[in-house]
Design a protein around this nucleic acid. Structure first.
Length: 298
DNA sequence: TATACGTGGGG
DNA sequence: TCCCCAAGTAT
């Protein structure tokens, strides 16, 4: 029976598993912290927002080599930053990261803030990233809750196949499980994410190998609602998002040149959709119209 | 609270 | 092939 022991089992068994199996990722190495500090952690967290680890790793090194500090990036242009973002997806994150670098430079003397409230006030930083930086860069004690952690909590503790929509309850539950010491709390945060990413996965969890198998409430209940349909992602083919992606890709490829408006995807199947994409990119600050030509933002 | 927002890899 | 999914944030 999982029962009320489930949470304490999670806390006691996870660290041992994590120490022996954790992936060797750049932002977990001591040299990474020595070299890039909180800025390195912040950049990695921006890239990891909805982009898989395997795609982030190769970009991160080049990024930090080019802009090793917030001030270095703040002195670049938005166009350079969006161009360097390449195909990581959700390019608004590149713009937000650039704005955060400017804010850090202007408001915090070029030092990534340590305080969660100050971090939350920066562009593109929300509940997850703010606490991730405070915990993984500065070693402070906060609940870091991402989608992996929410899934592990839902299964191991609550006995549900999938987590409920994000809420403050997630933070409260995670906070109640956090070990007392700073180092143990930070490690526990990382271990929960790691378990969700590699073992307690969304589609095909490997319960047979899971260190929490003996206490998992969901497994004990017979893995109910395994095939529970989650809200389907909108179809990408033919979508406005695809149009935006195509326009921005063109601007990146031509950068720093501007592209005459009548040469921006003239063959696009739905011209009105293409124009909508152009307008929305301009509205977001990801593109700039100069006379009759379009370019990445200065 | 629900929706928009890229891109590519794996089952 | 097609569908699922990935360390979220802003509105």
């Amino acid at each position: 029976m999982p029962g009320p022991q489930a949470p304490s089992d999670v806390v006691s068994r996870l660290p041992t598993w994590y120490r022996s199996t954790a992936r060797d990722l750049p932002w977990r190495r001591a040299e990474f912290h020595d070299e890039f500090g909180a800025w390195g952690v912040l950049v990695s967290e921006f890239m990891l927002q909805q982009t898989p680890v395997s795609r982030v790793v190769p970009h991160l090194e080049a990024w930090l080599a080019r802009w090793p500090t917030p001030a270095a990036m703040a002195s670049a242009s938005a166009a350079e930053v969006v161009h360097q973002w390449a195909n990581l997806g959700y390019p608004r994150r590149a713009l937000w990261l650039f704005r955060a670098a400017v804010e850090i430079t202007e408001r915090h003397g070029g030092i990534v803030p340590r305080d969660v409230e100050a971090l939350l006030a920066l562009s593109g930083i929300g509940d997850y990233t703010a606490r991730a930086v405070a915990v993984f860069a500065y070693g402070d004690r906060h609940p870091v809750v991402d989608t992996n952690t929410r899934r592990v909590l839902a299964r191991a503790v609550q006995g549900r196949a999938q987590p409920a929509p994000p809420s403050r309850r997630d933070l409260e539950l995670m906070d109640s499980l956090l070990p007392d010491s700073l180092a143990d709390a930070a490690e526990f945060n990382a271990a929960m994410m790691e378990l969700g990413a590699t073992m307690c996965t969304s589609r095909a969890p490997r319960c047979e190998q899971c260190p929490l198998a003996n206490s998992c409430a969901w497994l004990a209940a017979g893995r109910p609602d395994t095939g529970d349909e989650r809200r389907r992602q909108a179809t990408y083919e033919g979508s406005d998002r695809q149009a935006r992606g195509a326009v921005l890709r063109l601007l990146r490829d031509r950068s720093p040149e501007a592209v005459p408006l009548d040469l921006v995807l003239p063959e696009w199947p739905d011209p009105r959709q293409r124009d909508r994409a152009i307008d929305s990119l301009i509205a977001d600050g990801l593109a700039e119209a100069d006379g009759m030509a379009l370019s990445l933002p200065r």
